[in-house]
Amino acid sequence: MLLTQRIIEVCLISKDGVTPFAVIVEQGEYCAWSIASGRNHTTSQQWNGHVLAAKERRPEEWWVLDAWKEWLDEISQETPGSRICSLMKLERETPGIVIRQPREVHTRLPVGAIASRWRRNRLFERTEIIVAEIAHKLARGGTAHWNSSISINDCESLKGDWIIEQKPRPESDMNFDDKISEIGDSNMCGIAIINRVGCEHIESVKDQWSAAKNILKEKCPCNVVIVKNDSHAEVSDLGCIIGERFPSPVSLAIAVVRSQWYAGCY
């Protein structure tokens, strides 16, 4: 039997828009919550990057996230009526915070599972989920994985051989040389992004990558480009995507998530 669950988002507001940073899922007396931090609710984690991005929020204020976790834990144990009062009071008296009820879901899953899914899909920048996952795989052992089978959480596995290119930020609009330079000057090793490269760009990317690869590998152990190697595309020795499926150099990460979203995987 499908059960109706109510989704409540706690959002930060700023001139840049509304950013959900926590979710409460209710079904009758049952309630679960989740927040935009690392997976482990019991330890302190940094705010998720896109939550911090707006309004000059400061990562050193990680402890405020802990305060919010405690608050969420508290109100999740209240009765539904009492909880809604607490949320209304919160919204009324806490500037910068707004409560939204985006939708109800009809599901057989428990509230905890829905909260967990909502966190994964809404509280994080979707690209970040994928790049963090890949970066984690790459960082394991401290060496670059030129061939790796990638599975994103419990969603559809991204089977194939991949090469990852690291950048300072996803979707940066700097040119390649600038990106290489910035990566080389920093000690970033946790962010990765998958690039699709159009056929018309292959040769130039090969040249650029060939020139930069060794420098990057010295400074950051997992700086590589990802490419999918299947029937629709080939992987060159230098780690570039070749194939008709990649008509433009947009982020594959975004494309993959978008297609999975529309396909109902989330």
Partner: peptide
């Protein structure tokens, strides 16, 4: 703080 604190229950 750059992100406001919740109230104490």
């Amino acid at each position: 703080l750059s992100i406001n604190l919740p109230n104490i229950t």
